[in-house]
Amino acid sequence: MLKAKVGGALPAANEAMMQRAEAAIGDLRQNFKAWLEEEVGKLEALMRTARTSGIEGEAGEALFTCAHDLRGLGSTYEFPIITRIAASLSKLIETPEQRAAAPVALVDAHVGAIRAAILQNVRNDTDPIGKALAEELETRVTKLVGERS
C-alpha cells in the first residue's frame, strides 16, 4: 500500500507547493521558445512532405502525431491558441479514413495558422483575429468530421 509507504494519506495541495511547482516550470521557461520552434518546424517539414506525397500514408500519420503532440504542448509553452488549433488539426486527420477525406488546403491552413500565431505573438484567443481564425478552422473541421465525443 502506497499510503503506508508515504506515511499516511496525502494532504490537500497547499499553495506554497503549487507555487514551487509553477516556479519549477518557470525555470524551464527560457527553453519554451526554442522547444516550440522545434515542434512547429517539425510540423511544417511534415506538411511539406504531405503536400507532395499526400496525407494518406505514413506522412499523414506522422503529421497527426506531430499535431497531437502540439495539442499537448502549446499551452505549456504559453501559446494556448496553438493547443486549440492543433486540437482542431488532430480532429481533422486522426484516422486513415479522415486523412483520406481531408482537404490538404484545410490541413495546410492549420499549419499556417500555428506559424502565424508564433510570428504575430498571438498566444490565446483573447486576440480577436486569433479567435476568429481558430473558430473558422474548427467550424470547417466540424462540418467535415462532425462533433466527436
Binding site: K3, L10, E22, G74
Partner: peptide, 20 residues
C-alpha cells in the same frame, strides 16, 4: 490531459495513495 496543471498531477497522486 495535457497540457496539465501541477495541481492536476498532485490530485492524481493523491487519489492513487489515498483512495487506491
Amino acid at each position: 490531459v495535457k497540457p496539465f496543471a501541477a495541481e492536476g498531477l498532485y490530485g492524481r497522486l493523491q487519489m492513487i495513495v489515498n483512495r487506491p
